[in-house]
């Protein structure tokens, strides 16, 4: 007859053994999901940057930039704190800004060694240059030299790009779709684009950036989000070419090293509306990775990009840090903080 101790020992061993397959299963399924393609693959860290929403809430997280010291500046249209400043490990360093209800575009510019921010506010119909601490240094209003903007409500700027000489290009993505060019003092120099389906026109000129890669003559990359394309212009406003990205409603171009990154707000070809993903193009304007998405070859030989995994919910921007990790702020995502994609 077995003793009670022997019985318990045997039972515990058997019980523990019975757990093994389940634990193996858990292990297998706890492996981090890796998304993306080729050299651009990522693990997803959803907890990075999650803060106490009662103290530092967010509404739509629109854009994000990284300063020279590594801090990450997030722009939200929550007027309790329009700017949240994160350290790289996702901790809050400081916050500021209560005056930007339509905070949308955030551009970082190094002005003779001093970094400044450019914020567009489509509700106030203005753009603002601020210090990294939130002091407003300059304001640009709807340019009255353009008839459409006599009513300032037609000026709903979504993004800025700053040229090396400090002059400012503004994309009016939610307004009349003009790309306006101001000198560094805020005087209108030129305007081009406008609403339409022409090759040099826009339907939702949502994002703009300066492309200075490879020592070539600087050009402007401007997204036409509803047209699922990015259009290249000279700094004088001449249309140079259009890169079509069927299926992908791209928000703004973000150049990092040799590549151009985009958040894709949503994609066609999917049954759910929150169908966004991230898209990365190389120096030849070829898509090299689309984390969260895949593509289908269409009968006319084009690639149609579309979400395959519901990892993101309306991603609105990408910020790439010095270690090539990608931070993804999201619009209309239920007041969530940015998602971090850790490069593998």
């Amino acid at each position: 007859m077995r003793s009670r101790r022997e019985f318990l020992n045997t039972s515990m061993v058997l019980g523990a053994s019975a757990l093994i397959p389940n634990l193996f299963w858990q292990c297998e399924h706890s492996e981090a999901l890796i998304i993306g393609h080729g050299d651009f693959k990522y693990k997803i860290d959803p907890q990075w940057g999650v803060l106490n929403a009662s103290k530092t809430p967010v509404k739509d997280c629109h854009e994000m930039v990284q300063t020279k010291n590594g801090d990450l500046y997030l722009l939200t249209n929550h007027t309790q704190n329009n700017i949240l400043v994160y350290t790289l490990d996702g901790k809050l360093k400081k916050s500021w800004g209560t005056q930007f209800p339509g905070a949308h575009g955030l551009t970082l510019f190094d002005e003779n060694g001093t970094e400044v921010l450019w914020i567009t506010d489509y509700e106030r119909n203005q753009i603002f240059k601020t210090s990294l601490d939130g002091e407003i240094l300059m304001t640009i209003d709807a340019p009255q030299d353009i008839d459409t903007y006599k009513d300032k409500k037609n000026f709903k700027p979504t993004e800025t790009a700053i040229a090396p000489d400090g002059s400012i290009y503004i994309a009016d993505g939610y307004g009349a779709q003009w790309i306006t060019h101001f000198d560094s003092k805020g005087h209108l120099v030129n305007f081009f684009g406008g609403y339409g389906t022409g090759k040099d026109q826009f339907q939702n000129a949502h994002g703009i950036c300066l492309d200075q890669r490879f020592g070539k003559t600087p050009t402007l990359l401007i997204t036409a989000r509803e047209q699922q394309a990015v259009k290249r212009f000279s700094l004088e406003g001449t249309h140079l070419n259009t890169i079509s990205l069927p299926g992908a409603n791209i928000c703004r171009p973000v150049i990092h090293n040799d590549n151009c990154y985009f958040s894709v707000l949503k994609s066609s070809g999917v049954g759910n509306e929150d169908s966004g993903f991230v898209l990365i193009m190389n120096e030849n304007d070829e898509v090299v990775s689309c984390p969260g998405a895949t593509f289908t070859n269409t009968p006319n030989g084009e690639k149609q990009y579309h979400q395959s995994l519901r990892v993101f919910k309306y991603p609105h921007d990408v910020c790439i840090d010095k270690d090539e990790n990608v931070y993804v702020p999201q619009w209309n995502s239920g007041n969530t903080y940015p998602i971090k994609l850790e490069r593998v």
Binding site: H29, E31, A32, P46, L309
Partner: peptide, 23 residues
């Protein structure tokens, strides 16, 4: 073994991700 396996990764795993709705 149990502790190692039960440690939750901070990263999202496939089982937590939903496929997109087909069109």
């Amino acid at each position: 073994f149990c502790v190692a396996c039960k440690q939750k990764s901070k990263y999202i795993h496939a089982g937590a991700v939903q496929l997109s709705t087909p069109s």
